[in-house]
Design a protein around this nucleic acid. Structure first.
Lengths: 156, 156
DNA sequence: GCTATGTTGACATGCTAGTTGTCATGTCCG
DNA sequence: CGGACATGACAACTAGCATGTCAACATAGC
């Protein structure tokens, strides 16, 4: 039994609390806005990665395309997302952030970064980078594992 | 705008996918057993930390005590958890894992560690330790932040 | 001791994020 | 051009939580 396996287990033991707490904190910052947290995630993604189709967003965010579809609809109603014609595909439009969407995201992101700076102050920069490396690797490996174990999620 | 704040943001960007995927993978491993994932977490905690009262478990796991209460009830029905008299408190019993509970947990934990070893193989041991440090710090800081922002959760 | 204040168990309710299932339509490739 | 696959649209459904409330009990301060 390798030591790293056991140590990696400690990572997972922390994941749920961090997820839970960050959700609460982010939600508190979102309280007086009209965007929900998942919608926010979609806006963020098309903001950073550029216009994408619904299935592309779904794969990047590890959500089902049906789930993303609903979020996109919601974002469109709020005026933060818009569908643009997709030269590659007549039916599957490209989803992009509107001007308003970009503004909302920028404002939110700013608030959050200030808070994060305060938290980051107690941390080593190298540790943070290492943490990102580990998490990215986990997403990759778990994604593969999940695809094996559960033949659902339309397989990707 | 410090660089570390932005980098820390990357950590959070990965948290949700990891949480989601690990939940799915763990659930797959739990499929042919009678324990659910949250019940499993409670068993694990009393297994590792020793007999605890419901509110103590709740604080450690960052769940509401009402939530833990239900999980404990469920675990008791399955025969994996039991209530022992608490010398410090007549009404609030100590929750402990039964023999069966310890057995189930050990068996699960073993399976998982084997899988984790495979994943850990592609990772640097130092990075994993750094990751744990960062996450532990985040739990601590976010907990404080959450307590400030949302006066609920019975405050602790 | 006795009362104020907090803690715990027990139960009920509600919500959010996400999945699964299904079908019709559209796209790609042999 | 035909079959496999991707996409949009809609509809349940679920799990995992929080929230709210109350009575019973425990603890501390007087």
């Amino acid at each position: 039994m390798s030591e790293t396996g056991a140590e990696l287990y400690e990572v997972f033991r922390h994941i749920r609390p961090v997820h839970q707490l960050s959700a609460r904190v982010v939600a508190a910052g979102l309280a007086h806005r009209d965007v929900s947290m998942p919608v926010r995630a979609v806006i963020e993604h098309v903001h950073d990665a550029g216009p994408r189709t619904v299935p592309q967003i779904a794969r990047a965010l590890w959500i089902t395309r049906q789930g993303v579809q609903r979020l996109v609809d919601e974002g469109k109603e709020l005026g933060y997302l818009e569908a643009r014609p997709n030269p590659e595909h007549k039916r599957s439009h490209l989803i992009a952030a509107t001007e308003a969407g970009r503004a909302v995201y920028a404002s939110l992101h700013d608030e959050e970064l200030t808070r994060l700076d305060r938290i980051a102050a107690g941390l080593d920069a190298g540790d943070i980078n290492a943490c990102v490396r580990v998490l990215a690797h986990l997403v990759h490996e778990l994604g593969a594992l999940d695809a094996l174990l559960t033949p659902t999620m339309e397989d990707q």
